[in-house]
Design a protein around this nucleic acid. Structure first.
Length: 570
RNA sequence: CGGGGCGUAGCGCAGCCUGGUAGCGCAACUGCUUUGGGAGCAGUAGGUCGCAGGUUCAAAUCCUGCCGCCCCGACCA
């Protein structure tokens, strides 16, 4: 491609709404343009990258034995009513009405449509297992779209759905998908990590997320380097450390008029923070006999809200109780709560259950208990894993110490079981002629998000540094002063022809631009290989070759050309 | 949805408090010069000042309502 024939639309300045580096670089390089909140046009440049990602995903899915189809983006409300998700999916679902007043949704996901397809198409166990997938535009009316295509409302997703006769088949196919995803992210040249995940509201038991690692990632991941253990912190199991020591101290009530937080307690009364307990009060589940429930974690630990919400006695979504409600129920304000004489039910974190001689609020404003011991001073209530793991915690599988890193979720695989086949009555005949609901798996990849995540992981202060498999072009030719020098221009043209015919994706900067502009654009675009052709170099039979992100080296012309040609031989 | 902020040229912003000719930088266009790190000079073009109503002789500016966008939180590929 010659730039003169292309639509190159780089810019120096960024709109003030572009917060993160990938969004800024996508705007500056001219890959995307915003139409309205959370909705973007992919320019010819950006689309080249998007298509690269899409094609890698497609090839690996095909290789894994999946079959591509294309389902409608617009889906009738009736299907969603069958699974009760028309209302349950909430405001994320974009609803539209046709001229006859019939209701539709712009698909945020396609479980309903694929299950409807399956119940019409699949009749016999002989057709299973089978996996269908599509690469489709989805729409989720996100409460707050942000970060460009990283969290857009309209986005491109690969979603796949498999159907199985039994658990064993689902399990083994799940592994096939796990391996396919691994292959996809390896081929794309991204640093990534597969982690155990919470399955969220899509349902199902086993679930893994695939994360592109980047410091700016929104998700925290717990892992033990060089081992199998990796989990999203939302899900990472907290292991209690140590043993329960016998009481050493007596229970005492201490006046603590100025201690409203754990930090106050630690500072003013010289309590080790590991000997303090935080009491958090949340709304109880509507079916419970109390209105509120207390959750206790060690002073220096944080409540894991996802874990807490999963407790049957806790309301979902997790809602912290108001100060008034707490005061009404306990007689004290939130800063003075503790387990002894607490009139509402509690659940304590595993670590808290192993604490002795600890301090906590006395459920009287301005007073704390010191020297609390379970059993002696208060019965040990229900124990659960409630806390967020921290760096240095032992991994639950005993593999070592947990380290926390950040990632961007780009893929998620689930075992759905028969949730949808049951709800929508999709059945196939088994060997005995008996109807059964096939088990399903569901496998998503955020195709457009991968593009942003890749930039987030691979850039410098000059621009993008594409992993070669995602780059819009492999080579950029920079003929300096090509408009003045026939020799430079013709050499560039010649290389352009040769490389293009050989199948290398070449961008030729044939604009009459000053060198600085050409260099800056080439770096901003992140093209993996650049070659500078100039009169000065040609005099010596040389050019300058630069892999993006590395130093520029002078090379004989023929060596450089041979090197570029070798790029396609793999 | 709750809390905060902003809508003035394609982009970034000033002007608004204290009403009276709409401005700057970048980008664009023309010409000349320049050509190894986002050039210089000269010139040109581009605006229903988010929308509607109100106050006023007069509104980008003051008042009311609406719309849009952005930031912080819950949600997610």
């Amino acid at each position: 491609m010659k730039i003169s024939q292309f639509h190159l639309a780089t810019q120096k300045e960024v709109p003030n709404d572009a917060e993160i580096v990938s969004h800024q670089l996508m705007i500056r390089s001219g890959m995307i343009r915003k139409l309205t909140s959370g909705i973007y046009t992919w320019t010819p440049l950006g689309l080249r990258v998007l298509r690269k990602v899409e094609q890698v995903v497609r090839e690996e899915m095909d290789k894994a034995g999946c079959l591509e189809l294309l389902m409608p983006a617009i889906q009738p409300s009736e299907l969603w009513q069958e699974t009760d998700r028309w209302d349950a999916f909430g405001p994320l679902l974009l609803k539209i009405t046709d001229r006859a007043g019939r209701e539709f949704a712009f698909g945020p996901t396609h479980e309903e449509v694929i299950t409807d397809f399956a119940r019409a198409e699949l009749r016999s166990y002989k057709q299973l297992p089978i996996c269908f997938y599509q690469i489709q535009t989805k729409f989720r009316d996100e409460i707050r779209p942000r970060f460009g295509v990283m969290r857009a409302r309209e986005f491109l997703m690969k979603d796949g759905y498999s159907f199985h006769m039994d658990e064993a088949s689902l399990d083994s196919f799940y592994q096939v998908m796990f391996d396919a995803y691994t292959a996809i992210f390896e081929r794309l040249g991204l640093l990534f990590k597969a982690v155990e995940a919470d399955s969220g509201n899509i349902g199902g038991a086993t679930s893994h997320e695939f994360h592109v690692l980047a410091d700016s990632g929104e998700d925290q991941l717990a892992h033990v380097p060089d081992t199998q253990y990796a989990a999203n912190v939302e899900r990472a199991e907290g292991v209690a450390i140590g043993e329960l020591d016998p009481p050493q101290r007596d229970l005492e009530v201490v006046d603590t008029p100025n201690a409203k937080t754990i930090d106050d307690l630690v500072e003013q009364f010289d309590q080790p923070i590991e000997k303090t307990v935080k009491t958090l009060v949340v709304e109880a589940h509507p079916d419970a006999d109390h209105e509120l429930i207390a959750l206790l974690v060690r002073g220096d630990h944080e409540l894991n809200e996802v874990k807490a919400e999963k407790r049957p006695e806790v309301a979902s979504p997790l809602t912290f109780a108001s100060d008034e409600k707490i005061k009404q129920a306990t007689g004290a304000h939130p800063g003075s709560l503790g387990p002894v004489n607490l009139p509402i039910p509690m659940v304590v974190d595993r670590q808290v259950a192993l604490m002795s001689d600890f301090s906590a609020g006395a459920n009287v404003d301005g007073q704390h208990h010191f020297g609390i011991n379970w059993g002696r001073d208060v019965a040990l209530p229900a124990v659960a894993d409630l806390r967020k793991v921290v760096a240095g915690d032992p991994a639950p599988d005993g593999s070592g110490e947990i380290e926390l890193i950040r990632g961007i979720e780009v893929g998620h695989i689930f075992q759905l079981g028969d949730k949808y086949s049951q709800a929508m009555n999709a059945v196939v005949m088994d060997e005995n002629g008996k109807a059964m609901h096939p088990l399903m798996g569901c496998y998503g990849i955020g195709v457009s998000r991968i593009v942003a995540a890749a930039i987030e992981q691979n850039h410098d202060d000059r621009g993008i540094i594409w992993p070669a498999p995602m780059a819009p072009f492999q080579v950029v030719l920079l003929p300096l002063n090509g408009h003045k020098s026939h020799r430079v221009r013709e050499t560039a043209e010649d290389w352009y022809q040769t490389l293009t015919e050989a199948g290398v994706e070449v961008l030729l900067d044939d604009r009459n631009q000053r060198p600085g502009v050409m260099f800056a654009d080439a770096e901003l675009l992140g093209i993996p290989h650049s070659v500078v052709l100039s009169d000065r170099g040609l005099d010596q039979g040389e050019c300058e070759y630069q892999p993006r992100g590395q130093a520029r080296v002078v090379m004989p012309l023929e060596d450089a050309k041979a090197h570029l040609l070798s790029l396609i031989e793999h």
